[in-house]
């Protein structure tokens, strides 16, 4: 589709190289300080206007509320479980309509699933697995706020150990709140060998932009998990979204990485990880770990999980610590 050698697809080095033009306009019903929308806004700058966002039920379903849409491109709301199947229908239809001369090749669009973690990690897994299996040429943007956020912060299988949600409250039988660990969607998707797979953070816009630029040169499934700090659900001041997005990466809780044809590269490895406590403390969803008494065991467990992850990264990749 696009010419891979064209200047627009070369990796950028500084913020000024990010397009100034906006493709998702402000004024939507989305919460102030939404980390997911910040990430999608940056992604849209690479995707451009000839795009259809195929949506699954979640927070972002409220982006296009009749008669308004913030998108310069197109939009199709599907269901909670089948946005990737919707993408299949759109992509296949455009391919066949172009092949049969019913639509001009110039009017082709990028097909982008936009779905939250509740859809993506849980009920949409089958439809997405199918689309990746079929080698569908599409994008998948998962804004991961680690909960069923649009329904008011209930546990999804993306909710991390130790976070309190309204369906995993803290009590006698669950001192940590959520007792399960977060599902490793990156590895689940990677097992399908998609053309491209990456994690992105709204606080690392150059890394994010370069990943979308790289993916734009590839055909096939291009999958993104965007860390989406959520002031409404995680219970912190909306102005702190950028800080928590940064701390998630600097503590090593959220690893910035990509996989091309299944080969993983960590795109940003902090020289020294900050203690996870700096990320946890201050978020209302983790407050019970610190007050009224400190839950040393749970905090230690979270730190241990992170340390183990990175020890494994350093061991397998030889990356400098």
């Amino acid at each position: 589709m696009s010419d891979p050698t064209s200047p627009e697809l070369r990796a950028i080095k500084n913020l000024k190289q990010i397009a100034r033009e906006e493709f998702i306009l402000p004024g939507t019903a989305i919460c102030g300080g939404c980390g997911g929308l910040a990430a999608l806004r940056l992604a849209a700058k690479v995707l451009g206007p000839k795009t259809v966002f195929v949506n699954a039920a979640g927070c972002f379903t409220l982006l296009a509320t009749f008669p308004y849409t913030p998108f310069k491109g197109s939009w199709l709301y599907t269901t909670m479980a089948s946005a990737a199947a919707g993408a299949q229908g759109v992509r296949d239809a455009l391919d066949v309509l172009i092949a049969r001369g019913k639509v001009a090749a110039a009017d082709d669009v990028e097909v982008v699933v936009v779905a939250g973690d509740g859809s993506t990690y849980d009920m949409a897994l089958s439809a997405t697995s199918g689309a990746i299996f079929r080698g569908l040429d599409f994008w998948y943007f998962c804004y991961d706020n680690e909960s069923y956020g649009n329904t008011g912060m209930q546990m999804s299988s993306a909710t991390p150990y130790g976070a309190r949600t309204l369906t995993t409250p803290v009590g006698e039988h669950a001192r940590a709140g959520t007792e399960h660990g977060k599902k490793d969607l990156f590895e689940i998707w990677r097992a399908h060998r998609p053309a491209y797979l990456a994690t992105v953070s709204p606080r690392f816009p150059i890394d994010l932009t370069n990943k979308f630029l790289k993916a734009k040169q590839l055909r096939g499934p291009k999958l993104f998990i965007a860390h989406a700090p959520c002031p409404t659900g995680w219970l912190y001041d909306p102005e702190l979204t950028a800080d928590y997005a940064r701390l998630a990466v600097e503590t090593g809780i959220f690893a910035l990485k990509e996989a091309v044809d299944g080969v993983v590269t960590h795109t940003y490895v902090p020289r020294r990880h900050r203690p996870v406590e700096e990320y946890l403390r201050g978020q209302g969803r983790y407050r019970h770990l610190f007050e009224p008494v400190r839950n040393e065991e749970a905090i230690h467990k979270i730190q241990e999980q992170v340390d183990r992850y990175w020890a494994n990264v350093h061991e397998t990749t030889g990356a400098a610590r």
Binding site: L62, A64, T65, F66, F71, G73, S74, W75, L76
Partner: peptide, 8 residues
Amino acid sequence: PMAQGAAV
């Protein structure tokens, strides 16, 4: 461009 299936 067109938005389809928009919420009401």
